[in-house]
Design a protein around this nucleic acid. Structure first.
Lengths: 205, 205
DNA sequence: CCTACCGATCGGTAGG
DNA sequence: CCTACCGATCGGTAGG
């Protein structure tokens, strides 16, 4: 209750200053983790780029790992949500898988920084958190696997092992984070469509 | 020329001791880099597992990065060699791409440790070396891209952007390093065949 | 959100 | 290939 006037003024000026700062830290950390990797990025690097000193970060996060976790966690949440919506939607198994793949690629390419950190650095979380991440990723892999199995049973889809099929289809989509160039010739939507088309039809005409 | 007798005896007993040691360091480092990541693995970790002390490593390598480079470099060499052999071989464009994909997946899965390090940690090399790696990777991507373009021109292959097609097909193959379980139900060869079959025909039956 | 600082880790080297 | 050691970095904290 001993708040000084300058404190109050700052709060008013910035509106939800706390949330903005937190968001800002995450944004800068995401860019740096992508560029240099988690371990090569120091908390001083992050603070410097914001115009901070390191201890300021500890006002918003308990540890460096917590910053990484915030990034990685949001990605899984988003992916899982979209997956369920499409998987529970209309269409045959094959049609839903197609929609899933297009949407998955789009989501990744529209948010390249965070997704790159997700796929490159999530292995650096604590064993407990990594396990949790794997668990939730399994959930949405499982959504697609059962969809694929359904399509095989009905005769709509190519009869190979549903686990291999799912991992391969998702992998083809995910891998785009490594080669897609936002400044390139093709848009996110074009690339997402072409990848899905190739996987649906195969490369043999 | 002031070699002591114990030195001589050791050399004789071990044969090419130098090469063995170097190979041993690479093997242990590969396993540790895969398990824990490059930065989390210390040179003491590597030395400990061999029954060494850290400075021994500097007898065989100039720096920690040189150990990583040795691993990463051998992977590119191997891949490039196999790619060229198949690309220059017989068959239509589509047939050679199929053979390329089967062989590529097999090569990765047969040497999972080193390939995992290659795909996960090569970004940690010095800018100069990373650039060199990218360059050589481009070479074998280009082999496949031109093969794909040839197949599109002849009407054999699905008409999408050859760069997108190549990146997607290779990505689907590469991604197997993240999910393949050597103790699982399916063998390396079975998985490699199923992936290639899916990519060739598409998942729609 | 800052200044000052600690403790631990670690790549690398001297010198043999 | 070992012992001993240095210099630098860095996550994290005290105390305000």
């Amino acid at each position: 209750m001993a708040r000084a006037t300058p404190e109050k003024r700052r709060s008013r000026t910035r509106g939800q200053a706390g949330n903005d700062r937190r968001t800002q830290i995450i944004k800068v950390a995401t860019a740096l983790f992508r560029e240099k990797g988690y371990h090569v990025t120091s908390l001083d690097d992050i603070a410097d780029r914001i115009g901070f000193t390191k201890p300021a970060i500890y006002y918003y996060f308990k540890s460096k790992e917590d910053v990484l976790f915030a990034i990685v966690n949001s990605i899984v949440d988003e992916a899982l949500e979209r997956f369920r919506a499409i998987a529970d939607g209309p269409g045959s198994a094959g049609e839903r898988i197609h929609a899933l793949l297009v949407e998955h690629t789009r989501t990744i390419l529209r948010n390249l920084d965070a997704n790159t950190v997700f796929y490159n650095e999530r292995g650096l979380l604590s064993p407990k958190r990594e396990k949790e991440m794997r668990q939730r990723e399994r959930e949405y892999t499982e959504v697609m696997r059962s969809l694929y199995a359904e399509g095989v049973a009905s005769g709509e889809l190519l009869d190979i092992d549903p686990s291999v099929a799912t991992a391969t289809l998702l992998g083809a989509s995910i891998w785009s984070y490594r080669w897609f160039d936002p400044r390139g010739r093709l848009s996110v939507d074009e690339v997402a469509e072409q990848i899905a088309k190739l996987l649906l039809n195969g490369y043999r005409r």
